[in-house]
Amino acid sequence: MVTAVSSPAGSSVSLAVDVGGLRLANPVMPASGTFAEGLDKVMDLNRLGAFVTKTITREFRAGNPVPRVCETTEGLINSIGIPSKGLDYFRDNVVPFYGAFSPPLVVSISAPTVDDFAAMARDLTVAGVAAIEANISCPNIEEDGRSFAMEPRLTETVTAAMRKATPLPLWVKLTPNTGDIVAVARAAEAGGADAVVVANTILAMRIDTETFRPKLGNVLGGLSGPAVKPIALRMVYQCADKLTIPVIGCGGIATPEDAVEFMLAGARAVQVGTTTFVRPTAMIDVIEGLSAFCARRGIADVNELVGAVVDGNTAPEEAEAVL
């Protein structure tokens, strides 16, 4: 499983990371909802560190009215609304598809109640599923964009319930739409999460100035893409500082340098989402670029980047050492 990618410089860099109970060949994986079987047509899926599925629900869900997406500067706003063919379809059709590939399959789940979240986690504890990512953060699924991950108490309760329901590694995906993301992240850790994903989309909207109508059928949606990167990066930095479980960085990652930045801020791994829509092979570029970056900087193991930001808390001698 440990990959040594030979770099242009000729040296060999280890990209393998341990993330919340899983050992990944490299730290790069897709973000939920921006990846599916279709990408197999465009790139070699075996290159990825892991697969993360679109969030599924137990029952069939139609999703939101169109338009479901609108562009904005360096990003987009979406209100897809989690269309889902349901749990049974997923287990029978999607899980076997990924069985033909080597990266571990992380299944993103959502549910309307604590008990339903736990039952979903239990029912997905099947061969072929390597970890659960609980999307307790999707801003569209509940009214007014509210969600479990807005509050530490609800986050801990739902995480603890899933923890009891499955022995699989449990990742909890947080929302930036909360007053205190660090408190929510700590609650996930207290509830037994193996990792947190920071973060989902930022609640946003746009209005068409010709028609005076909102640009999304659902009025509100979630902002993603390079436009959100500095905010997601800040949240990763804040959370990583206070947690012992790994943080997976997500939000606006488009280039290898973005991935490096998130890892320096404390992310153990990264998810690439919206960028894949614009450059379908972007994840490959990020993997290769990470390796090349490490080689160029004389870093033998990508884990050395994690949390290596030289901020006020680092003594000057240490700072020099990492540089």
Binding site: T34, F35, G38, G63, V66, P83
Partner: peptide
Amino acid sequence: ACGIGMCFCCVR
């Protein structure tokens, strides 16, 4: 958005 069946934006 994606053009390859991943994002479910283009439904009718």
